[in-house]
Amino acid sequence: MAHLLVVEDDERIRTALLRTLRERGHAVSSAATALSGLRQAVDERPDLVVLDLGLPDLDGSQLLRMLRAVSSVPVIVATARDDDGSVVQALDAGADDYVLKPFAADQLEARIRAVLRRASGTLDSGSAPVTVGPLTIDPRTRRVVHEGAQVELSPKEFDLLAYLAARPGTVVSKRTLLVEVWQQPYGGSDKTVDVHLSWLRRKLGESAAQPRLLQTVRGVGVRLAEPEP
């Protein structure tokens, strides 16, 4: 059970988050303003903060900087603004991850778990290099080495590969990939995933007809696994 602090000015979201996160077994406290949130983050020493960027008294990025000055508590930013680099700004200011509104409770929960695992020092997709057969993915340096040679990937291709590499052998649906990698809990086209997978295969020297590492399970999804002998 983790102690979470939700800093969110909208009462309905705050209430809904408190309820849904408590249902998932977390101890949750909340704050409606940036300053009370900062005070609670210092006083209560939560395990993780879910921070809304659009707070009434202080810009979320500013609060994040102030928080970082006194605490290293993991922060997941929740924002409705996906356009003007506010996400990048928040990550630069010290956020560990972000979710775009409107998000699903499961999506937030998955991110909370991932960030908490990383914070507790458990090696996972967030920190340690992952090796799958001849492929090594290092999320910290965002470098991919395949059969000894570095592979140049676009940011989205890397995120997709890193997500699959964090779950080696597990079949992940394209819908899940759209939610987790593209942050599109609704809408989006499976074909966006397909075309990125095609590029990944191309860059890893394989094809859809003869897949080795990236294996499609028809009607279910895709997995990253060691080539079958």
């Binding site: 409705a80 603004r81 409107p102």
Partner: peptide, 25 residues
Amino acid sequence: EREAAADLAHRLRTPLTALRLDVES
């Protein structure tokens, strides 16, 4: 204009988030 568009995103997506979380329960 940029501020208005960002504000619009915030104003529309915030109640949608609450609605979505409520519906999920």
